[in-house]
């Protein structure tokens, strides 16, 4: 239970951070992350190099990603165990959000849907 509280301080992730972490399921360098994020978000999230560089630095510092290797001045990063836990916790939150949103669209009360999710 203490682990859970610890993970919550990283949440919610911004959309950019969420996609960067998803992309780093496999080792990738910066440009690879940019391309993958744009592809899997269907063009919704496009990262500038300044934003991505800063995100790499802070995510590495927080221990959510780590550098795997450096090839031709390009660092490759990958998720750490902690990074995977944070990502899983974020996905859990998103599932609740999505269930509530779908219930709203179906004309149900949002509390009803949230209650069902908890069971």
């Amino acid at each position: 239970m203490t682990d859970r509280i610890d993970l919550n301080k990283y949440l919610p992730l911004t959309e950019a951070t969420y996609y960067i972490l998803l992309a780093l399921d496999e080792p990738l360098h910066g440009y690879g992350v940019m391309q993958k994020v744009e592809a899997i978000s269907q063009g919704a999230v496009r990262l500038g190099p300044g934003t991505l560089y800063g995100a790499f630095q802070s995510l590495e510092k927080e221990g959510l990603i780590r550098m795997i290797r450096e090839e031709e001045r390009r660092k490759c990063y990958q998720l750490t165990g902690k990074g995977r836990q944070v990502l899983a916790a974020q996905v859990g939150r998103l599932q609740v959000m999505l269930a509530n949103g779908q219930a709203f669209q179906d004309g149900m009360g949002s509390s009803h849907a949230a209650g069902r999710m908890q069971e």
């Binding site: 360098h29 910066g30 440009y31 190099p49 001045r73 660092k75």
Partner: peptide, 24 residues
């Protein structure tokens, strides 16, 4: 034209390579 403010030098090659890869 875009300006960044960056005073970390130890990781500069990697920083510049990322911008270059993105077409800057």
């Amino acid at each position: 034209y875009r300006l960044d403010f960056n005073t970390t030098h130890k990781d500069r090659a990697n920083y510049l390579a990322l911008f270059q890869d993105a077409g800057w």
